[in-house]
Design a protein around this nucleic acid. Structure first.
Length: 896
RNA sequence: GGGCGGGUAGCUCAGGUGGCUAGAGCGACAGCCUUACAAGCUGUAGGCCACAGGUUCAAGUCCUGUCCCGCCUACCA
């Protein structure tokens, strides 16, 4: 103990404690317990490799909640696991296969899935080890994976249930298609990106007339699939062409000219080419007018044989160039105008999305969305921050059918069987024996897999064993809180709520805490693709887990993008080191002055805090009590950053800066009670800080005496399972007295600093105060405390005393401090110093006076506020006069 | 086009239901290797709280408008 290193070395400490925690099963939740339940399901990280900074923040916050509630005596469950993340993971694997010179299709479905499972085993293991390095106190015995047998059964059960309710159905419909991934995706997965494109104005001649319609489009290549031209029914410019036929250039096709109110007369030329198979709006128009849906693209977005032969096989972009060139040659191209517009891209692979018609499985989410809204309005779910509720409602109220099938292999295959004999569709848990319609037993299972978010949506109960009615579900469902970034409110949170209501008939969680996304100094979201992200493991290696966690928590204010500059992590490291050294100081001194055996409870057994000679003990205990209360309150309101800031300020600027300095004096005077209290305060503060900085606090807590024999915490083997501190009450008298003392000490230090009094020089301090009570307090404590902070030769305290010649002065209300500095005082410097303060006070006096001169203020403001103001003014006025007098004297002495 | 968030010290941010002389961290400047800590200690400087109105005894805080920045959302080809 005596040879504790001077500098905190996190790496020697972190690993060993995590192992102990796990070995002792502190993280394991009981399925049934007398303790109240508290449950969080982890947002399962994708098995795409390593965790990023966002995971670090998300899981740190969850760990804070779990550790805090565990200490409060809850039966805490933090359910961990990973997500198979269909499309992304497949993309990674496909890249890997390409490097090996093979491909997904070459391997075939079965072999490919095998490879995926190998990948999963490695990746999930790596993710778990990273979470453990971060200190996450998950219940690892319950780790889950979305493709586990149990969770897969939950998926099939949910699917069949919703299918039977008619909420899931197959339909041929237009949806977003990714030509790269070869699958349909939902509109949430489409990221609109502003692109500098062009408006191509094209001439469409009208049959049997001289009329030529000018049509504007951003996608000229789609004209090969045009099956109509539309104008607004009331557009006067075009009345004479409605019902006529247009001649589609390049295709020699005749297409009708129709009237539809969708067309905006103000936009473009007011005449719209209609491509029902390749544009969402055109699709709708097509349905209304019974137009042919002419598909001209292959699934990978090349031109198919529905187009004129010369274009077949071209890519979308090649075709566009060719079409434009051909139109120019035909003199059918009027002009090309630059046009900036949003183009949809697949958020996973970046490919431009193609609206396409295909048979897909959809989920009608409207009824469940409605229930989700009602449940939230009823208060079953609370969003933090509250503003997210509005976003949630808005999304839910405008929700559209959810395409849930994906033309991929890695995922839950749809539990749908088509009868090869009669075509009847069966949804079932297993392959059906025979067709309920025709009795045949020849089936073909649907090839598609489900959208990953479908299984993620069941996570809060599939992880607990649903569809079985398990003890876990009975104990922990609905879970207590869900913690995630606001960016996946719709993707995931909304769907969990809907599926929770659909499957469990109850919301999946009571509170949704949506934190910000980690950004760099410029406010840009950190991401690997931007190259501005911090790697959690590297950061932990450099600064230690606790420093990193402190920085994450400290910056997690409720704004959408939270900047995490390197300097914050450094601050965390310095804080850890500061705590380490405070502990070192206490532990080293405890060797010389051990806490007596018989002392069961330090806080209760030190000499009465109200006795004069132990003012600093009463004070620090009062401040600790306040810290316990405010930190707990902050945690309850999900303001972890505030809790972190409170603890930082208390530990550093009250406990270390002041209390330990007092304690040094006491120890040197052979009064070790102050040391024992220091140990006690540090022990309790370690418990408060443990949710944020688990490793450091454990290390210190283990070495500190934790309250002798009777304190409950002592019987527990780890701070992890120690009790959350309770406030013991505050002591306003001690706090006020200490505030005065601190002001005096600070004034003396300030004078010395500003007038450059050499450190080694002792000074006399003369204090004048008309207030007998204050004089009494100063007399009792100042001689004791002041030498701890600065060199003093002598202290004089009197009701009135004249200012010694050539002395510096400080004024605290009606109290004045004089320090004779005959040899060294710089009168100009002193004059400047006092003058500056004087000017400030004059301003403050005027402001306070103005408020008090207002009769309405006296009349209408609460008495408390008026009194405060009056006291402030009185204090300031005394100070002003004193300063004015001193300034006059200084000026006079300068003349001499 | 609609909606949301932000604009407070050089930088990054705190400032629940209006009421302490507007705070912190980092940075800057000056001085200290004071026997826990130089990853430290002490002192100092630095703010018309975006702008304009309004409500109020009282506004950084509430209301209206304006200007910037960011985000979400929307079928304008």
């Amino acid at each position: 103990m005596a040879n504790l290193p001077k500098i905190y070395a996190p790496h020697e400490i972190e690993g060993k404690w995590y192992q102990l925690w796990q070995k002792n099963g502190y993280f394991h939740a009981e399925s049934t317990s007398d303790k109240p339940p508290y449950a969080i399901v982890i947002p399962p990280p994708n098995i795409t490799g390593s965790l990023h900074i966002g995971h670090a923040l998300d899981n740190t916050l969850q760990d804070c909640l779990i550790r805090w509630r565990r200490m409060q005596g809850y039966n805490t469950l933090w359910m961990p696991g990973t997500d198979h993340a269909g499309i992304v993971t497949e993309l990674i694997m496909e890249r890997q296969l390409a490097e090996e010179g093979t491909s997904r299709t070459e391997l075939g479905r079965e072999k490919f899935i095998e490879r995926m499972w190998q990948w999963k085993d490695e990746s999930a293991g790596y993710i778990v080890s990273q979470l453990q390095k971060l200190g996450c106190s998950c219940d690892w015995e319950r780790e889950r994976f979305t493709l586990d047998e149990g969770l897969s059964k939950a998926v099939r059960t949910a699917f069949v249930k919703l299918y039977d309710q008619g909420l899931i159905y197959r339909d041929t419909y237009m949806a977003n298609w990714c030509p790269h991934c070869n699958t349909v995706i939902s509109n949430l997965e489409v990221e609109p990106i502003e692109i500098d494109g062009h408006f191509y104005h094209i001439r469409y001649p009208v049959k049997d007339s001289e009329i030529v319609l000018e049509i504007a489009t951003t996608r000229p290549e789609t004209m090969l699939g045009d099956t109509a031209v539309a104008v607004h029914p009331e557009d006067e410019r075009y009345q004479h062409v409605i019902g006529k036929t247009a001649l589609l250039p390049l295709c020699d096709r005749e297409i009708p000219i129709i009237a539809d109110a969708y067309v905006d007369t103000e936009f473009g030329t007011g005449a719209l080419k209609v491509t029902p198979a390749h544009d969402t709006n055109d699709y709708e128009i097509g349905l209304r007018h019974n137009l042919e849906q002419l598909t001209i693209f292959t699934p990978d977005a090349h031109i198919n044989e529905n187009a004129p032969e010369k274009y077949v096989g071209l890519s979308r972009w090649e075709c566009r160039e060719q079409v434009v060139e051909d139109l120019q040659n035909l003199d059918a191209l009027v002009k090309i105008v630059p046009h900036r517009h949003a183009v949809g891209h697949h958020d996973r692979c970046g490919t431009v999305v193609e609206p396409a018609i295909s048979p897909q499985w959809f989920m009608n989410v409207r009824p469940l969305a409605q229930r989700a809204i009602e449940a939230t309005k009823k208060g079953d779910i609370q969003f933090i921050p509250e503003r997210e509720t509005t976003r949630f409602y808005h999304w839910m109220e405008n929700i559209e059918p959810w395409p849930i099938s994906r033309q991929r292999w890695w995922g839950h295959r749809l539990p749908i069987w088509d009868c090869n004999a009669c075509g009847a569709v069966t949804a079932a848990m297993e392959t059906p024996q025979q067709c309920e319609v025709c009795g045949a037993s020849d089936f073909r299972q649907e090839e598609d897999v489900l959208d990953t978010w479908f299984s993620s949506g069941l996570w809060p109960f599939s992880t607990m064993g649903w569809p079985e009615n398990t003890e876990e579900l009975q104990t922990f469902y609905p879970t207590s809180v869900l913690v995630t970034g606001w960016d996946i409110l719709f993707f995931w949170v909304a769907r969990m709520i809907m599926l929770g209501l659909g499957c469990m008939n109850e919301v999946p969680f009571r509170t949704v805490y949506l934190h910000g996304l980690v950004a760099d100094e410029k406010g840009q979201k950190m991401s690997k693709s931007k190259g501005n992200s911090i790697d959690p493991l590297e950061t932990i290696d450099t600064y230690g887990t606790d420093a990193f966690r402190f920085a994450l928590v400290n910056t997690s204010t409720p704004i959408p993008y939270v900047p995490l500059p390197e300097s914050q992590i450094e601050a965390g490291k310095r804080f850890a080191n500061k705590i380490w050294n405070a502990a070192r100081f206490i532990l080293m001194n405890l060797e010389k002055h051990p806490v007596p055996e018989k002392m069961d409870d330090v806080a209760a057994e030190v000499p009465s805090p109200y006795k004069q000679e132990t003012l600093e003990i009463a004070w620090i205990q009062s401040r600790l009590s306040h810290t316990i209360a405010t930190t707990t309150e902050a945690f309850e309101d999900f303001r972890f950053y505030e809790g972190a800031q409170i603890l930082y300020a208390f530990l550093w600027h009250e406990f270390c800066d002041w209390y330990l300095e007092f304690a040094k004096q006491r120890i040197s005077q052979n009064q070790p009670e102050a040391l024992w209290v220091a140990a006690d305060v540090l022990e309790q503060t370690m418990r408060l800080l443990h949710p944020v900085m688990p490793f450091l606090t454990e290390e210190i807590w283990q070495q500190l005496p934790h309250g002798g024999g009777k304190n409950e915490s002592a019987e527990r083997g780890s701070i992890t399972v120690s009790a959350w501190p309770e406030p013991i009450g505050e002591n306003p008298t001690a706090e006020t007295t200490m505030a005065t003392l601190m002001e005096v000490i600070e004034s003396v230090r300030s004078i010395r600093g500003e007038l450059n009094v050499p450190l080694g020089a002792s000074v006399e301090v003369h204090i004048q105060s008309p207030n007998a009570e204050i004089r009494e307090r100063l007399e009792a404590y100042l001689a004791q405390y002041l030498p701890a902070f600065t060199r003093v030769a002598d202290i004089t305290i009197a009701e009135s005393l004249s200012k010694p010649p050539a002395s510096a002065e400080a004024v605290i209300g009606e109290l004045a401090i004089y320090i004779p500095l005959a040899d060294i005082i710089d009168l100009d410097a002193e004059h400047a110093r006092l003058s500056k303060r004087h000017q400030q006070v004059v301003k403050d006096v005027a402001a306070a006076q103005k408020t008090l001169d207002n009769p309405n203020f006296i009349q209408r403001a609460p008495e408390r506020v008026v009194k405060q103001k009056e006291e402030l003014l009185a204090r300031l006025e005394v100070e002003k006069e004193k300063l004015a007098r001193s300034l006059a004297m200084l000026t006079e002495s300068e003349k001499e």
